[in-house]
Every structure is written in C-alpha cells, then in structure tokens.
Nucleic acid binder design. Structure first.
Length: 274
DNA sequence: CTCCAGGCTTTAG
DNA sequence: CTAAAGCATGGA
C-alpha cells in the first residue's frame, strides 16, 4: 500500500471531490474512498497534511495533479479582481483539478446533461455495479468503471432500466462507437480539434466536450459553460450574452491558458453560495 | 402543481 | 446561421 503525503492547504479532499468534477466517491473513515477507472484510493486530511493511500501511487499522484503548484494558480485567480473568483480561490484554496480517465469522463458527462449531481452519481453507480469488473480495496469490494465493450454489450435497454432517462440512446451509440474505434487518436489533437472530434459523438455537445477535455484530457484552457456559469456570468460579471458558445469564448479570452482552473473556482464559489 | 438540474438533438425559421 | 421544442427522472 503506497501512501502519499501532501500539504493540506492546497489539497482538501472535500473541495476536490464535492465540486462536480468527479462522481465516484463515498465518505469513509476520516475522509473518502475515491474510485477512478479500475482503481481506488482512500484520501483524508490529518493535521496539516492530506494523505492518499492506494495500491498505485503513480496513478493517484497524477490523478490528484500533485505535480502542479496551486499556490501560483490561486494567486492568479485573485489577480483578476473579481469578488466571486477571489472568494472561490480563497475558500476553495484546497481545490485541485483531477486528471481522470478519458472514457469514464465521456460517459459520465453524457449522463450529466440536464441532470443533477446526486442523480448523476446514482446512475453511474448502478452502471458500475452491473457492468464493472469486481475489485477489492482495503478489504472491501467495489466495481471498476466498465469498459466500452461492456457498455456497448449492454445496449440502450439497460441504460433505460437503470434510470439514465432519455440519455439511454446516447450511451448506447457512443459506447458502440468507442468499442469499435477506440479513442487513441484523440490524445494527440490540439484543443480545438479535440473539441470538434468530441462533438461528433452522440450525446456530446459543447459543454460536455469542454468537461471531457478539461477533466479527461488535461486541457486546462477549456471553460465549460453550464447553468451555474451562465448564472454567475450574469450576476457576477454583468454579462449580457445569451448564447453559451459566446459566453464560453468570453471567458476563454478573459482567462487564457488556465481558464479551466478559474472555471472550477467560480463554479465552486457559486454553488457554495459564497 | 411547477421548476430545475454541470444540455443535446432535432426541427423550424 | 440562430431559436425553440422535446426529452426522462427525481427532488425542492
């Protein structure tokens, strides 16, 4: 069992997990058990340090983005002089952007559309329980996120049955395509070309493509615009645009290379009612 | 009852 | 090109 230790000021399990970038985690012990692809870890804060216990230290070091300096990122966030962003970067100082499995992100965010986080978590949990390979971590069983082949084999009826709603067809079509083609060619594309490519998958629109790029491909310049961002755009930035693609362009130009981090601080701040 | 949730597809103008 | 209807589900 590998154990990673990190400065808790810039690594808060709660902030990292409860900000909507990941849907597979459960409260456990002093912190949480977190599941990604076919792996698991136990993350908790004790004193001034946050610990990650797992079987694959390299995977979770990268997963939690521990090679990156978030002191610099929060400082840059505060430099814009936007009250909501400053509050988000201050109270959400322990937030980090995760580097998650790309295929898991594709399916998870297709499910997320026009949906709420508790229900998204439930749908994903039922999919994993039914189709994911069984594994063991810390003496307890869990299920890996299913392969695209397993998802494709289940078909639309299965997704309907476990409560995915109208997204059943999207999941069936996209899993069938990925099971047949794979996604290897996506990794080398530029940000713009990756987004265009993602938009060709059934059930993936602009917002979902940005989430997949940001959380699944490490494209930190992406800025997903959802209902919360649209609201804070109006209320905290005095924005008047209505088209989400234009709002996306506005924020990307404003924040540049690390727009994705700023998006998370803003999303966090708005949802926490800061 | 209506409204909303990390929106997308389809159709109409 | 933009605008709007339709879409499943569950909680507030």
């Amino acid at each position: 069992m590998a154990v990673i230790e990190y400065d808790a000021r810039y690594f808060s399990p709660r902030d990292v997990l409860e900000c909507g970038q990941i849907f597979r985690f459960v409260p456990f012990g002093e912190g949480y058990k977190v599941f990604s692809a076919d792996k698991a870890c136990y993350v908790y804060t004790r004193g001034n340090a946050t610990f990650v216990e797992c079987d694959d230290g390299d995977y979770f070091y990268n997963f939690f983005d521990l090679g990156r300096d978030y002191a610099a990122i929060t400082e840059r966030a505060k430099s814009f002089g936007v009250p909501l962003l400053t509050r988000g970067a201050s109270l959400g100082q322990g937030l980090r952007l995760l580097n998650q499995n790309a295929e898991e992100m594709i399916y998870s965010f297709i499910i997320s559309q026009n949906n709420n986080i508790p229900r998204i978590k439930g749908i994903i949990e039922r999919i994993c329980a039914a189709l994911g390979e069984e594994r063991t971590f810390m003496g307890e069983k869990y299920h890996a996120f299913p392969t695209s082949a397993a998802l494709a084999g289940a078909g639309a009826e299965f997704f309907k049955l476990i409560g995915a709603g109208y997204r059943d067809g999207y999941l069936a079509a996209t899993s069938a395509r990925i099971a047949a083609e794979g996604i290897d060619e996506l990794y080398d594309l530029s940000d713009d070309d990756l987004k265009k490519a993602l938009l060709t998958y059934t059930g993936v629109g602009p917002k979902v493509a940005d989430c997949i790029s940001l959380f699944g491909f490490g494209r930190r310049a992406c800025f997903p615009v959802d209902t919360w961002i649209e609201k804070l755009y109006r209320e905290d930035f005095g924005g008047t645009l209505k088209n989400r693609d234009r709002i996306n362009r506005y924020f990307c130009e404003l924040f540049g290379e690390d727009a994705g981090y700023m998006q998370q601080y803003l999303f966090y701040a708005k949802r926490e009612g800061l």
